[in-house]
Amino acid sequence: MLSVCDAFLTFNPGTPLAVPALRGVDLDVEEGQFVTVIGTNGAGKSTLLSAIAGDVRLDKGGIYIDGQEVTNWRTEQRASMIGRVFQEPRAGTCSGLTVEENLALAASRGSRRSLRNALGRGGQRRRLADQLSRLDMGMEDRLGAMAGTLSGGQRQALSLLMATLLPMKILILDEHTAALDPGAAATVLDLSAEITGEQKLTTLMVTHSMRNSLDYGDRTIMMNGGRILLDVHGDARKGYDVPDLLDLFKKTTGTEVEDDQLILS
């Protein structure tokens, strides 16, 4: 479903500030697979996701979605294939649009937008309200409220619904619970697992928590220094626990994991 081949990317190339963010990443994700991506700060997790979404272009290498090469496609061209939830709750929704308008915008993703009224008649509104009530966040009665008035958890849940409203090839979750309080984070995470399981979505989720990276999904990738360090799935993954990941990290890199957040959470 998704192939990243020999991906290289350096930010600010040729300057003293040059940062090699991806240094030869190869990744093949099968249809319906839920991959969690973990790594220290600067490991290249978010860069990899941004490259797949189209926000940054690779210096070298290729990206294929469902057999189609998209390496040089712009973000908006890929958007019909990719659903996306951002880290920052404010980033994935529009504060100045109502809940219903945000959903209507997502409902026309990938199709040519016309001068038809974006908000459909009663039928569409009821369908959206039904979808919202499934989130169980009390948003079904707030279709007309500005998204800016929602809580962080509500906005991420709305973002998630917007991302998964239409059929797509890949769902990208970029630390989408990192900015939430623990309660809301757990709710949104469970919601993500529920929706991806139900619709059998091919998913890439970056997380900062080793615990979550093993508890959710069916494949775990650990990145370090712009490369994929560790890739566990299937039966092998069932035997893994957080200390095993830490050990493996130490064995492969020769250093301890220094990112406290990775260990503690």
Binding site: E76, A79, S80, I82, F86, A91, C94, S95, L97
Partner: peptide
Amino acid sequence: ENPAMARAQSV
């Protein structure tokens, strides 16, 4: 209002 979000929605 939010160009990054708009792009992600194929705008």
